[in-house]
Amino acid sequence: MPVLVEDIMTRKVITATPEHSVMDTLKIARQNRIRHVPIVEGNVLKGVVSDRDLRDVSPSVLASMDLELLEKTKVKDIMVTNVITVHPLDTVEDAARLLYENKIGCLPVVVGGNRLVGIVTDGDILFCFVEMMGVLERGSVIRLNIPDKPGSLMKVLELIAKHKISIISIFMLPAGEKGKGKREVTLRLQTIDPSDIVDDIKKLGYEIIWPEFWGEKR
């Protein structure tokens, strides 16, 4: 079961309506310390304004303040209407990729007929990542590259089992452009002394990234 948008989204969304003035919307954003305000009619999503949209239409602090204009302008005239949204059953990976590829900071979560049920921000994704990487149990870290072949991770796991050491977490990534044909594995093991395991992994011919002496910049 992957982690889903509905697992990490904020359900109580702070919103404004298209008829709100830019000034009021700016106040809503500041008071709630948020950077994105979904604009709704009833509970139907009509658009989004970000702190940048609001800043773009605010007078410069260096120029004379024309507050009247901010009060007169309606938010519907400056909001973004072609909003990128997600569904509660989208995965967190999907949400992360949308944020990253479109260089945006939030994704309103909508269901049938554009009804707003939540919001996911880059902060929520980061928090999810912090939790996944987080140290919940005491252990030692080993990072290594294994060949991208069936059974290569198994060899490492068998070796750890032979030492009767519990695995706290495993994190596996494709090794990227430079490491074609390899996969990068980060293991957290329940031991203060992983040195025997590291030696055994080296004997398999696998490349240890940590613990290893730091050479020049990668």
Partner: peptide, 9 residues
């Protein structure tokens, strides 16, 4: 640093 050494905290 716990990012590199036991216990991690």
């Amino acid at each position: 640093s716990g990012h590199y050494l036991f216990p991690g905290t």
